[in-house]
Amino acid sequence: MSDDTTDHPKPNRRLQGIASLLLIAAAGALWGSSRMKWAEVLGADGLSLPRVFEVLGSDWSPWLTGVAALFGAGVIAQFAVRGWALRVVAVIIAVAGVLSAVPAFTLIRDGADDLYASTRIDIPGRYKIEAVTVSTSPGYLLLAGALCAVIAAVLMMRGASARGMSSKYTSPAARQEELEKKVFAERERRLAAEGNVDTPGAADGNERLMWDSLDSGVDPTGD
């Protein structure tokens, strides 16, 4: 007798544990990056000294904190769902991880070559933009977080497909029943031999079978 759990496999908790750590790291990276200074805009109005305006990550990409919260929710979701629902969560995490890397690329590649930073904050109209300087450190931190999220999504997908236990589980009662059948079959074989002496190998096998029977509570000498 067996209990088939093929239709509802248990996710691999070890993979999910690693994925959880990666998601926490990704959420922390995105949140930290959103609080860092991404750029400085130098503006002058011709009436006073030039003024420096700071552009934070939350100004550059306001949705970074929302994605960080999504990663945090993914840690809980992957332990609450399984099967196809867990795969959907993994896909959402992967897509969010890839999209979160886009602002990092724009910052590192051409953040200082355009006036995008100046449009992300409120600068009085009288100021003329003189220069824009960027800090690439938040961008690399964001890329690291995005990579952690994508790897976590892959592990979640593998964890959803892996078996937490064998698809066939034999209960103790079923194992005892199977052992009883072996004992009775061996007894019938000996009776059919009409008193013939067993070979040494067969004797060892019989002795081992008797010990297994005793361990399972089966009397190997009974009728």
Rank of each mutant, 00 (worst) to 15 (best):
A112S: 11
A152D: 01
S100Y: 01
Y127T: 12
M156F: 02
S161Q: 04
P138Q: 12
A162R: 10
A144K: 01
D122Q: 11
D113R: 15
T106C: 00
A152N: 00
E177H: 10
D122A: 15
Q176H: 13
I108R: 05
L107H: 01
S171L: 11
M157C: 05
S118V: 03
I121F: 11
D122S: 15
G125F: 13
A117Y: 02
A173L: 10
T106K: 03
R158L: 12
V102R: 09
S118L: 03
C148P: 04
E180H: 11
A149E: 14
D122V: 06
K168A: 06
P138E: 02
I123L: 05
A144P: 03
R126T: 09
T170C: 01
V102N: 02
S171A: 13
E180V: 10
S135N: 15
G125C: 04
I121G: 09
I151W: 01
K168T: 10
M165Y: 09
Y169I: 13
P172W: 09
T106I: 03
G159C: 02
D114V: 02
I151K: 03
E178P: 05
S118P: 04
L155M: 01
A144Y: 06
S137D: 13
R126F: 05
R120G: 04
A112C: 03
A174Y: 08
S161N: 13
D113N: 15
R126K: 12
D113G: 05
R158I: 09
V102S: 07
E130P: 06
T106A: 01
P124W: 14
E177S: 10
